Amino acid sequence: MGTIIPTVGRVVYYKSYGTPNGEYKPEDRAAIITAVKDAEAGIIDICVLNPTGFFFNQNVKNGQEGGQWDWMPYQKASASNSQSAEPRPKN
């Protein structure tokens, strides 16, 4: 997969923690990147959009566990396709 660089304003998934006893499972939520702390390490600040409101979270690491962010499937597919595509000939 090609490398996607986090930038301010992009929409990503934020994985909610869920509850300790499992009443609520971790879920993907939409989030907007509000600051990039370390692009190489995938550490960003985000605004998470929930059905009942929003909250801000700082220094969020990239990953697929609760409390982390990740790229959406279409973003991953787009990065993958752009890496494998043949360059266009120059006219």
Results as ranks from 00 to 15, higher is better:
1 M>D: 12
1 M>E: 13
1 M>Y: 13
2 G>T: 11
2 G>E: 10
4 I>V: 15
5 I>Q: 09
5 I>P: 00
6 P>V: 06
6 P>F: 03
7 T>Q: 13
8 V>L: 07
8 V>C: 06
9 G>N: 09
11 V>P: 00
13 Y>Q: 13
13 Y>K: 15
14 Y>E: 03
15 K>E: 12
15 K>H: 07
16 S>T: 15
16 S>R: 13
17 Y>G: 01
17 Y>F: 13
18 G>C: 01
19 T>V: 10
20 P>D: 08
23 E>H: 14
23 E>C: 12
23 E>W: 12
24 Y>T: 14
25 K>W: 14
26 P>Y: 05
28 D>K: 09
32 I>W: 12
33 I>Y: 12
34 T>L: 05
34 T>N: 02
35 A>N: 15
37 K>T: 10
38 D>A: 12
38 D>Y: 05
38 D>L: 05
40 E>N: 06
40 E>F: 00
40 E>C: 00
42 G>R: 07
42 G>T: 08
43 I>A: 09
43 I>E: 13
43 I>C: 09
44 I>M: 06
45 D>T: 03
45 D>V: 01
46 I>P: 04
47 C>T: 08
51 P>V: 06
51 P>I: 05
51 P>C: 04
51 P>W: 07
52 T>H: 11
54 F>I: 01
55 F>K: 10
55 F>I: 04
55 F>C: 08
57 N>I: 06
58 Q>P: 00
59 N>M: 05
59 N>D: 11
60 V>A: 11
60 V>I: 15
60 V>P: 11
60 V>Q: 10
61 K>W: 01
62 N>Y: 14
63 G>C: 04
64 Q>I: 07
64 Q>F: 05
64 Q>A: 03
65 E>S: 10
65 E>P: 02
66 G>D: 07
66 G>S: 07
66 G>L: 03
67 G>W: 12
67 G>T: 10
67 G>D: 09
67 G>K: 11
68 Q>P: 04
69 W>G: 01
70 D>F: 03
71 W>P: 06
71 W>T: 03
72 M>N: 01
73 P>H: 05
74 Y>T: 01
75 Q>S: 02
75 Q>K: 01
76 K>W: 12
76 K>E: 08
78 S>P: 00
78 S>R: 11
82 S>A: 12
83 Q>W: 06
83 Q>D: 14
83 Q>S: 15
85 A>I: 04
86 E>R: 15
86 E>M: 15
87 P>K: 12
90 K>D: 09
90 K>T: 04
